[in-house]
Design a protein around this nucleic acid. Structure first.
Lengths: 139, 139, 139, 139
DNA sequence: GTGGTCTAGACCACA
DNA sequence: GTGGTCTAGACCACG
């Protein structure tokens, strides 16, 4: 099972699950159309309350990563950008600023940060989205 | 004033202050021995509750970034790495993985991610490596 | 109080609340910066569980209609388009198709639909968003 | 075949079928007395569970849109308005208010909303008013 | 069986 | 006081 959770982490459980799924999809370990485990099944596996799993799925649905159908289950959605590019960039930059500031406080230097970034980016290996579909359509 | 706060940010106010100070210290804008403003003074400037400032200072003290002397104020402490480097790198990579996966789902491509990374890194106006090790805290 | 709920409606309670707030903001009855009632207070007024109100607020936050800050409350956000225009149009059209088909089944004719649309649109009176900020930036 | 279903839509399958039939009847593509396909036949064509088709037919029968004769099949019924017109208009307006408020939050302007409305209305290929009142159900 | 909604109540984090 | 997370368990809607 790809989806794991660390109950001792300060990060909310449902948030961990959300990130887990996003990561799995982004790296190709889960593909569009794949069925996720059912809410109850996953809750049993992860030893959390079904509501917690349901909330994670709701978030994923809302962000367009998955879609759920009553009676059949939850599935990985086709990638379809819904956010404006400028909004996406804004959120990315905000998160990155915080992350790098934190990394600095943990004693990492620019070299470490570059290296980590390259490794992390490589994991997405990018072909699925079409390599370079540039869109300069933002204001 | 180096210390700024964005009340509309989702990040807790005290946390913003903590990061702000850490950043200032890490980049050399504040140096060991420097005196921070008093809780009340800073609270007035930032228009926040003094409790919020006090909590930030308490956290900074606890993390060894500053030290407080009753009656005289709060000062920047000598730098001492609290985390082992590999642990820092591990956390950095984990956070970055989640962030980049998210960026992908938001419709960003590798070009966007690199660009944002470069900009974000530049904003740290990174201290030349080695400088942070110097001991001549001239003031 | 602007916010009302009909417990006998088949529409989920939290969804009714979400629509209520969106409507109030869209028509100018609530304005950016306005504070919404607290989760507990609103739950008491509407005679629903606080979790139900909290969920509505989470949805509103996620859609950028409001923002919440622990310790201070939930506020109407500045209007800031986050969705791609094509995605917004797609969802609008889908909802409208269903609505019109339903109206047809209820015995309304084209004249009724036009009239209702004009009245409904008039309630937004539109000045707040700048009348005609055209954006042809979608593909 | 007039009846289509989109399995990736959030709308329940049986509900889609119901609306489909209602729409076909309302626009004259199916006329009173017309025979609908059998449950099993339709289920095969649409690749859905026969239970789903049966439920749709049951709803249609209950709403008076169709009537079923054991052993011979399901037929389109004579039109008879089930709701008072003002009640229909009231519901239409209420739904439209919510929809337009939502559209506004999604960044659409009045121009977009009008355009979408016109397109959506056109798709109903509206029957000329009065035609739906005719009694000569020739077949 | 599946997901969705709601309630009740506990506990935590923030100002 | 505020909002946020999680659990437990009930009930409904769908296939």
């Amino acid at each position: 099972m790809i989806l794991r959770i660390d109950p001792s982490s300060p990060e909310p459980l449902f948030q961990q699950l959300v990130n887990c799924v996003k990561s799995a999809v982004a790296t190709g370990r889960m593909r569009p159309g794949d069925k996720l485990p059912s809410v109850r099944e996953l809750a049993r596996e992860l030893v959390v309350n079904p509501n917690t799993v349901a909330r994670a799925f709701q978030v994923l649905d809302a962000e367009g990563v998955t879609y759920s159908r009553r009676g059949s289950g939850t599935f990985v959605a086709e990638p379809r950008p819904t956010l404006r590019k400028d909004e996406g960039l804004r959120r990315y930059r905000a998160a990155l600023d915080a992350l790098l500031a934190d990394a600095l406080h943990m004693g990492l230097d620019a070299h470490d940060m570059w290296g980590g970034f390259e490794e992390s980016l490589a994991e997405l290996h990018f072909p699925p989205r079409g390599e370079e579909e540039r869109e300069d359509d933002d204001e």
